[in-house]
Design a protein around this nucleic acid. Structure first.
Lengths: 199, 199
DNA sequence: AGACATCTCTAGCGATCGTTATACAATGGG
DNA sequence: CCCATTGTATAACGATCGCTAGAGATGTCT
């Protein structure tokens, strides 16, 4: 069996707390002292359990994407009709970005907006992940042009970029204090730009 | 006349450089060393000319809003028709946010997205300024409902929030590497959501 | 020239940064 | 019980943070 002194805290619980801190303050402006204070554990315990700050962030990011941020992937995967997928994406974002039990907005979008030259690689990684999400959306739209849901001449890249920008805008608005209905109205307005045979 | 040793650098030029650094890295993640390195001046010279880091940021912000960021105010003031104002706002943002001679996106939107608890007041100030801009846009739209340009039942707050989110999304996309035409396509798509008598 | 005022430079302030060595506490295996 | 093993707590590491005292440089004044 496992020997040695047992850990005095729940690792998953601590990781969840780290998600909350990084989510709220971002990577660079989150200090180790801020983390240990929020998690109620000591510095050495944090380093023993997660490695260093960078590793902890990436593990928190990974868990975030598989939990809080998974609704985007689900919407694209579970809705066969592209327009339904985008509508669900935006409406779920409206509620997810304004939940009162965790920080507002999207960690993937906001956590490394401001970063020092030393942690430029973290910003690059998040940008890459956002680009992957945008590409998934673009693929979904491009597929809809082949099924006939959308006109063949539809610019899938432009539409995907637009809705990607709307998501980022909704995240920013949520951080600025917008209500859930505010975000739902943004989603509703954005859906008016959905391409039609006329456009 | 003014006595004493003359300043060895141009103050406006240094302020312009400070704008660029804060624009790119944000407030918290911009260190004094980063500033003095970029401006080519010593620390004491910076403090003598601008006070402390906070005062320098606010002066840089003020200058930014009267130069790079002034196109928003101009669009709302110079275009009598609300729809023309919003269209001009978005199209000018598309080019302003992707200019190659300065950092991408909007300083007002991005400079304090990630901030430590110590500088929460700076984030609050920027948020307040964004709210003022959103209110100006909302007022413009509300006025258009009274002139008959827009239906009387138009929700000015919802429309203003939407285009505010689009601007923030365009800034984020610009930072993520979107091209000028990408942003122009976002603007074009967003304009399709402009309210009509039918909506 | 000399007095004075202002800027610049070097050096360093205390505080905090991320991180870790060291000593002690708490468990399981013999 | 004793040892091995692992986690926790204290304290401190070097580096950097924002910031400034003190000394020297460079100008205008009389």
């Amino acid at each position: 069996m496992k020997t040695g002194r047992p850990r005095s805290f729940d690792r998953d619980e601590a990781l969840e707390g780290a998600i909350a801190v990084f989510w709220k303050h971002g990577y660079d402006t989150t200090s180790i002292a801020l983390l240990t204070g929020a998690l109620g554990i000591g510095g050495p315990s944090l380093y023993a359990a997660f490695g260093d700050k960078r590793a902890l962030f990436f593990e928190a990011l990974d868990r975030y994407l598989r939990t809080y941020g998974a609704f985007t992937k689900r919407a694209l995967a579970e809705e066969p009709v592209a327009r339904d997928a985008v509508e669900r994406l935006l409406r779920e974002a409206a509620t997810a970005y304004t939940r009162p039990d965790h920080p507002r907005g999207c960690l993937l979008i906001t956590a490394a907006t401001n970063c020092s030259p030393q942690s430029a690689d973290i910003a690059a990684r998040l940008r890459e992940l956002r680009a992957m999400g945008a590409r998934a959306l673009e693929d979904k739209i491009a597929a809809a042009t082949r099924t006939g849901e959308l006109p063949a001449h539809t610019d899938a890249h432009a539409i995907a970029t637009f809705y990607g920008a709307v998501l980022q805008g909704m995240s920013a608005q949520a951080r600025d204090g917008a209500t859930t209905t505010d975000l739902e109205q943004i989603a509703e307005a954005a859906l008016k730009a959905w391409p039609s045979a006329a456009g």
